[in-house]
């Protein structure tokens, strides 16, 4: 085929295109993913029963806040990365801020506690449940986000996949936080942090295959 023929085909009856649709759709999908994750979490695990206790409520807010911060920062960069060339001039390392912050807080809380408490502060009662639940709840949000990103045009698939995994992991952490009764900063830093990093790595590894266009 001659290139001029192709240009003829492509430029006959050109339609108007809405350039804001990509971002809008992705935002709606991320919010829908969050709602789906909340429904899954509440239906499968339930909400902790001690929310009236001020200390428990405080930790609930802290854990939800951590997840929301991860989702907001991740989404911000994901919205950039779905457009060609969006990976350049993008301060992607800022997505680590919530992790560093929660690790710093965890460090402070460990230092101010006796060493005999450290083991329980880090392992909590249900580290295994956390380790399994967050990646499992993240699957559906990751699938819907990936499906939407495929319709855009990311040009760095590893990074875009990682960001999709990060957002899905953050969404899942918010959903799990409603149920989780392990109230210590080192627990949040270690188990919430590592499971979200796991989701991010999974996204980075699958991105080049899943997001190809």
């Amino acid at each position: 085929m001659n290139t001029d023929e192709l240009i003829d085909v492509l430029s006959t009856n050109v339609e108007r295109v809405d350039t804001g649709k990509v971002s809008r759709t992705l935002q709606i999908v991320i919010i829908s993913g969050l709602i789906l994750a909340l429904i899954t979490g509440i239906a499968a695990l339930g909400v902790r029963t001690d929310v009236r206790d001020p200390s428990a409520f405080g930790f609930l807010v802290l854990k939800v806040g951590f997840g929301v911060a991860v989702v907001l920062l991740g989404s911000r960069y994901l919205l950039k990365h779905v457009r060609p060339g969006g990976e350049t001039r993008s301060w992607i390392f800022l997505t680590t801020v919530p992790f560093v912050a929660v690790m710093a807080l965890a460090g402070v809380s460990l230092i101010s506690a006796p060493a005999s408490h450290w083991n329980h502060m880090m392992m909590g009662d249900r580290w295994l449940e956390c380790l399994l639940s967050i990646p499992v709840i993240a699957v559906v949000p990751f699938a819907v986000i990936t499906w939407t990103v495929r319709m855009a045009a990311p040009t760095n698939l590893t990074r875009t996949g990682a960001l999709a995994g990060l957002v899905a992991g953050g969404i899942s952490a918010v959903a799990y936080a409603l149920h989780c009764t392990d109230d210590s900063l080192p627990f949040v830093a270690l188990w919430y942090g590592s499971t979200i990093v796991l989701c991010t790595l999974a996204g980075a590894l699958t991105g080049p295959r899943l997001l190809r266009w």
Partner: peptide, 20 residues
Amino acid sequence: HTRRGTYDPAELLTPWVYAI
């Protein structure tokens, strides 16, 4: 052509074309 909806009119065109 098919992905032109991913161009942000507030940005330069050249980097977008180059990335594709």
